Simulated scan of single mutants.
Amino acid sequence: MSEPIIYLNNASVYQKNHPVLNNVNLSLARGNFYYLIGKTGSGKSSLLKVLYGDIPLKEGEGKVADVFLTSLKESQIPSLRRKLGIVFQDFQLLTDRSVEKNLIFVLKATGWKDKEEMHSRIDEVLESVGMLSKKNKKPYELSGGEQQRIAIARALLNHPELILADEPTGNLDPETSRDIMLLLKSIVEKTRCTILMATHDYSMIKNFPAKTIKCEDGKIFHGNSEELFTK
């Protein structure tokens, strides 16, 4: 049996020296889709930030994609993030350059050097999200759903073992949100990477049930989406 992609043991999550989650025990298997739910301020985003190295893990043990969080030095954060893909609610695309140049920027920042390999990988990920024809467009020329597809393509560039998605459908209409969910689910099936998706969209979870982690009252609970919504 393979090592879990995310492992936390008696971990505490802090936001500006204020504990938001205590005694977190979490073990997520590889190749699965998980939801992360909870009210605003319950610690969802802080937990994700710990997982991608934006907030240090001060207490307990933690490991993400075989990288130890407890002893993580600032110089090691780039190597952790090369194993991850991160998708944000507000897309975080650079508006002054084309889609292709957005993706080139990420590849260069993560150590890619060969131009031919970079262009080949960009075409690959854009095709996988149905956006190859948009590579010369600038983000502001695209719809919200198209921008989020580009953001997902960006997250896929380095063949991630894990994608952390923070409210990826939060700014999208219901039909576009459904399309993004179908895309994320298909990525898990095709690539066997793990996706952990924070969301408030309960109708989405009802339509696409999956294993779920809930942040509430400084603790986390595990179960399926139906159980945790009735808690």
Rank of each mutant, 00 (worst) to 15 (best):
S2R: 10
E3V: 13
P4A: 09
Y7K: 15
L8P: 11
L21D: 08
N22T: 15
V24P: 12
L28S: 14
R30F: 01
R30C: 06
G31V: 09
G38N: 08
G43R: 04
D54L: 14
V64I: 04
V67L: 01
F68R: 02
S71W: 00
Q76R: 03
K83F: 10
K83A: 09
L84T: 09
L93R: 09
L94C: 04
R97K: 15
V99K: 02
L103Q: 00
K113Y: 06
K115P: 05
E117H: 03
M118Q: 15
I122Y: 14
E124S: 15
L126H: 03
L126A: 06
S128R: 11
K134Q: 15
N136G: 10
K137T: 07
L142N: 04
E146K: 04
R149P: 02
A153C: 05
R154Y: 07
A155M: 06
L156C: 11
P160Q: 10
I163V: 10
A165Y: 08
D166T: 06
D166L: 09
E167W: 08
E167R: 06
G170E: 05
G170L: 10
N171K: 12
D173L: 06
V188I: 14
E189S: 08
I213C: 00
D217V: 00
K219Q: 00
I220E: 05
S225E: 08
